[in-house]
Simulated assay, not measured.
Amino acid sequence: MSHPKSVSKHLKSLNVSGYGGFIPFSSDPELGRGVYEVRLDDCALSVFEKGVVVKFEEKSVGVLYSDILNITSHLSAAVFSQASATQDVNISIPLEIHLSEGVLVFEVQLLIYSRVLIILNDMWRSLKE
């Protein structure tokens, strides 16, 4: 499987930090081989070669990278200021995946937000090229 080096680096970092694990022997006819699953507060994000699946309690949503129009981050200096002021890094921030038919929104913990964002953006961009 090929994906950008930065993705491998961030997946290994998430794994060492205990935020998920590599997916053994998983594949989907449309999304390709499973790579990694990140456990989030209210859902799980599964990264595949050609897309992602967000598994909520009652519903799973699969998205091909080629169908993504934009990925919007809500990470800001204000979020870091709030975390610093309250001395609480156990906060979650919305991450949006924009598609032609709507927006998929899920919450990602502050401590892993940038790594998840980089992984999604790099996988999306690598398949657009």
Rank of each mutant, 00 (worst) to 15 (best):
G18I: 04
V108M: 01
V16K: 15
E96W: 01
A85W: 06
I71R: 07
L120W: 07
I93V: 13
S73L: 12
F56D: 05
P24M: 11
I93F: 02
L40Y: 02
K12R: 15
F22T: 06
E129D: 14
I23K: 06
A83N: 06
P29T: 05
L99G: 04
V52Q: 03
V108K: 02
A44G: 04
D67A: 14
E129W: 08
P94K: 01
S84T: 09
M1T: 09
K55F: 06
I97S: 04
D88C: 02
K5V: 09
A83P: 10
M123F: 08
E30I: 15
F22M: 07
Y36F: 15
P29K: 11
L31S: 00
E107T: 02
L31W: 01
S126N: 15
P29R: 06
D122Q: 14
D41M: 08
K5T: 11
L120K: 04
K55P: 00
H10Y: 12
L95A: 02
D67Q: 13
L120Y: 01
G21F: 03
G20N: 05
I93P: 05
A78W: 09
L127M: 15
E107N: 03
L75I: 14
P24E: 12
V61M: 11
D88S: 03
V63S: 10
V89M: 01
V89A: 13
Q109E: 12
S81D: 14
I119R: 07
A78Y: 09
L75D: 14
V105M: 06
V52P: 00
H3F: 15
I93C: 00
N15M: 01
F56Y: 15
K5E: 09
L14K: 10
V54D: 09
E37F: 04
W124C: 10
G102R: 08
L69E: 11
L64C: 14
I112K: 01
L45S: 04
E96C: 04
E49F: 02
V35A: 06
V61A: 11
Q82A: 13
A77R: 12
V16P: 03
L75G: 04
I71W: 09
V79R: 10
E129R: 12
M1E: 08
I68K: 06
I71K: 06
F25S: 14
V105Y: 00
V105S: 12
R115I: 00
L110K: 04
K128E: 13
I71D: 07
V63K: 10
S6C: 12
E129S: 13
E101S: 14
S46Y: 06
V108R: 08
I91V: 11
S73H: 02
I119P: 10
S17E: 12
F80V: 14
E49K: 07
M123V: 08
S92I: 02
D67F: 09
V61P: 00
R39Y: 08
N70H: 14
P4W: 07
V79A: 03
F22W: 12
L99E: 03
G34C: 05
F48T: 01
E58R: 15
I119T: 05
L64E: 11
A44E: 07
V108G: 08
S76R: 13
E49C: 03
I112R: 03
M123S: 08
S8A: 13
V79Y: 00
W124Q: 07
H3E: 10
S46K: 14
L11S: 12
S81V: 15
V47D: 00
I93Y: 04
D41W: 00
L45T: 03
H98P: 01
G18S: 08
S100C: 07
L104S: 06
E49R: 02
V105P: 01
V61W: 01
S66A: 13
